[in-house]
Write a protein that binds this DNA or RNA. Structure first.
Ligand SMILES: [Mn+2]
Ligand SMILES: [Mn+2]
Ligand SMILES: [Zn+2]
Ligand SMILES: [Zn+2]
Lengths: 126, 126
DNA sequence: ACTGTATATAATAATAACTACTATTATTTT
DNA sequence: AAAATAATAGTAGTTATTATTATATACAGT
């Protein structure tokens, strides 16, 4: 796949992700795009999500539960998972990139980055 | 399931996990236990891993790639994932639990903990 | 605007990781 | 040793995701 051609399906996915504050699964995205494009296929959603992640236009959040989540807001930020209602929230907090240095200290290889999420009780559930 | 009864299959899994320094998948564990228990079923491996994780005798590491990894060494420690050879290594480093406080600062809910792993190039791959 | 070619799509099949079910077997209690 | 209970092997089912393929769309060159 050398040249990337426009598709309204991909545009709709990007649009939907940029305007939601949630962190939807591929299936949730599918359900929503369906309202404007009833014939869109789930495979198309997955393929475009992979493309968008690869292009850096969308973030993939994985490991929180069974299925991957997607985030249209690509500036670096951290996530919080509520243990009770399982909502995923953005965390506004100062950088913790220094933990890379901590990790590097006695490590023979090279630590380049980290993946972190926080968990606990959200405002409503605590 | 009120009472937990002994089983040599479960014992073999625990034994295998306690002596390996790797972080095997359920399937890898299955392959290895098979050498001493050729009839063990993959379902038995999964069921016992879940049990052992629940009992706190084994750690589950998820989100690194498609399938969960298991760790027989249960003292809290961090992991490193090599981007090139995809090995998972233990990281000996000082505690970074203070990042919970950082995350809590302006958060209306209650941050109780975090999940973190580091990535980069291991000693052989860098 | 018309045509050719490459890319994207919908629909569907396939895969991978894991869980559920059930008849049999192993462990523990009595 | 017999009864009671839990674990197992073997298998079927689920869920999330990827692969396949025939058709549709985008778009560069005329
Ligand atoms: Mn986010
Ligand atoms: Mn470890
Ligand atoms: Zn909550
Ligand atoms: Zn490596």
């Amino acid at each position: 796949m050398a040249v990337i051609k426009y598709s309204r399906q991909r545009e709709a996915i990007k649009e939907y992700l940029s305007q939601t504050k949630e962190h939807p699964t591929a299936d949730t995205i599918y359900m929503n795009i369906r309202e404007s494009y009833p014939n869109i296929s789930l495979g198309t959603v997955y393929r475009n999500l992979n493309l968008l992640v690869e292009m850096g236009e969308v973030l993939r959040i994985n490991g929180m539960d069974g299925s991957d989540r997607y985030d249209g807001h690509t500036q670096q930020h951290y996530h919080f998972l509520c243990n009770k209602c399982h909502k995923i929230l953005d965390l506004e907090m100062e950088s913790i990139d220094h933990i890379n240095d901590t990790a590097n200290k006695d490590f023979p290889g090279k630590v380049e980055g980290h993946v972190t999420y926080f968990y606990g009780k959200c405002n409503e559930c605590k």
